[in-house]
Design a protein around this nucleic acid. Structure first.
Lengths: 244, 244
DNA sequence: CCACGCATTTTTGCATTCAATTTCTTTGGT
DNA sequence: ACCAAAGAAATTGAATGCAAAAATGCGTGG
C-alpha cells in the first residue's frame, strides 16, 4: 500500500497549508504536528511512539517522521532508546521542579527586559488582561483564569523583545503544557488567591518599569507555582518511576 | 564509490567509540561530531553545509547526517532553507545581544539556585579557581584567564543542581562559542579589570549564599560582557547582512 | 562586452529497501 | 501448569534510489 494518496488518506491528515504561510517545509509541518500531538497528550506518559502508525496518520514515510523524532528528543519531549524507538518522556517530580525553576528564571529575565522595552500600549493591554483575569477569579472560572494568565505571561515574554528567549520559553512551556494535559492540573484553591495577589504586584512593578524588582517577583511567583505543581504531581503519581 | 569503507576513510574519520561509553547511538555520535565541527568554526559564517562531503568525511550515508542537521537547526546552530540545504547560522549583533541576555538570565538563575544547594567544598573549589584566574589576570594571560573564567561560570551552573538548566545553558554557550571561534574575540583591556572586580563580588555573594544578590550581579556581569561583545562584533562585521 | 535563456549537472527531499535487533509466539522440558 | 528456549514476526537504524528543485555552464542576441 502506497502511503502517498493525496486524494484521501493524506489529504485529510496533512491538512492544507494553503491559507497560512506556505514557505514552511514538510519537515516543519510534520514537526509541529507531531509535537502538538504529543503535547496534547494523545500518547500516554512513557508510551511508545509507533512510527508506522504515525506515518500512516500523517501520510508520510518514516524518514521525515524519524527526523522529527530526533528533534523532539533534543527538545526533551521524547527520549530515544537505542534500537527500541522513541518514548514520550515521563517527567519526574524533580524534572518538573527543574522546569519550573527555569521558567522562573526566564520569566524573571523577560520581566526585566520588558521593563526596558515595553510600550505604554503594551502595558495597557496587560492591564486589560489583568482585570479580565481578575473577573474570572471573582467568578471562580478557573479555565478562563488560566487562559488569560498564560496570555499575560506570554505578553511579558514578548515584550522582552528577545526572540531567542521567546523560543526557549516556548519549548519549556510546551513540556509543561504536556504535564498539564496528562495529569489534570487543578491549582489548589488557597494558592489561587495568593497567585492573584502576586499578579497585582507584577502589574505594579511593570507599571513602574522596576526591572530588577519585577524579576524577583516573577521568579518567586513561578517558584510558588512550582511548589504547588510538584506537590500535585507527587499526589497524582506517587511512584512515577517505571510503570511498565 | 561506496561510502562505507571501514578500513581506511571511515576508520580514521569515525574514530573508535570502543574506549568511551559505547551505549551512544550512531546518531548521537554524528550529532556531537557535526556540532563540534561547526562550533569550532570549520565552516565559515553563513556557508553551506555540504551534505555529500560531510557524509564522506564521517563515513555515513545522508540519512543520519540529515537527522543531525535538523537537530542542529532546532538548536539554532544552522538554518534550513527549503530546497536549498543547511547553512551555518550567521549571528547578527542583535542575535548576539539576545543570547548574552539569556545567558545572563540563566546564570543569574543558576547563581540563585546554587546558593540554595552549593556545598562548602564546591565554594572552596570556585575560590581556588577564582584566585587561579586572578593569577592569570595579573600575568596578563588572557587565554588562561578565559579558560578558568568559563570554568567558574560552569561550576556555578553545575551547583544549581538543575540538569535542564545545564543543558539549556550548554546549548546557548555553544552558539556563543562559535562566534568566539569565528570572530576572534579579544576582550578589551579596560573591561578586563572591571570584569575581575565583578568576579570578586560574585565570589563574595556566593560565600554569603546571597541568592538574590548573586542573581543580580551575574546578570549585570553578563550584561557588561554583552555590551563588549556586541561592540566588538559591530567593529569586526559592520554590515553583516548578506555577504553572498 | 554583458545580459539573458536554455540545457546540463548537482543537490535536495523523501520514499523505499535491507540488515540487525528486539519482541512476540510457540514449543518443549520439568 | 509454569518457565525457558527457539523460531517467527515486527520494529528499528541506516543505505540507497528516485523525482523535483536549484545551481551551474554555455550559447545566443543585443
Amino acid at each position: 500500500m502506497k502511503p502517498m494518496i493525496p486524494s484521501e488518506t493524506a489529504a485529510t491528515a496533512v491538512a492544507e497549508p494553503a491559507s497560512g504561510r506556505e514557505d514552511v517545509s514538510l519537515h516543519d509541518e510534520i514537526l509541529t504536528r507531531l509535537r502538538d500531538h504529543i503535547v496534547e497528550g494523545n500518547i500516554p506518559d512513557g508510551g511508545r511512539v509507533p512510527e508506522r502508525q504515525l506515518c500512516e496518520m500523517l501520510g508520510i514515510s518514516r524518514t521525515p517522521l524519524r527526523e522529527a523524532l530526533k528533534v523532539l528528543a533534543s527538545e526533551g519531549l521524547v527520549e530515544l532508546l537505542p534500537n527500541r524507538g522513541a518514548r514520550v518522556r515521563q517527567l519526574s517530580a524533580q524534572d518538573l521542579g527543574e522546569l519550573f525553576d527555569i521558567m522562573g528564571g526566564l520569566e524573571g529575565l523577560a520581566g526585566r527586559l520588558a521593563c526596558e522595552n515595553i510600550t505604554d500600549t503594551e502595558i495597557a493591554e496587560i492591564e486589560r488582561l489583568h482585570y479580565e483575569m481578575y473577573g474570572f477569579y471573582l467568578h471562580r472560572d478557573m479555565h478562563g483564569y488560566f487562559r488569560v494568565n498564560q496570555l499575560i505571561h506570554q505578553k511579558i515574554v514578548e515584550a522582552s523583545r528577545n526572540a531567542a528567549l521567546q523560543s526557549t520559553y516556548a519549548n519549556l512551556a510546551g513540556r509543561l503544557r504536556r504535564v498539564r494535559y496528562s495529569a489534570n492540573f487543578a491549582r489548589k484553591r488557597e494558592r489561587w488567591g495568593e497567585a492573584m495577589r502576586e499578579h497585582e504586584t507584577i502589574l505594579d512593578a511593570l507599571r513602574r518599569r522596576a526591572g530588577s524588582e519585577l524579576s524577583d517577583i516573577l521568579f518567586v511567583h513561578l517558584r510558588n507555582k512550582r511548589t504547588a505543581a510538584v506537590e500535585h504531581l507527587k499526589v497524582v503519581e506517587p511512584a512515577a518511576s517505571e510503570p511498565a
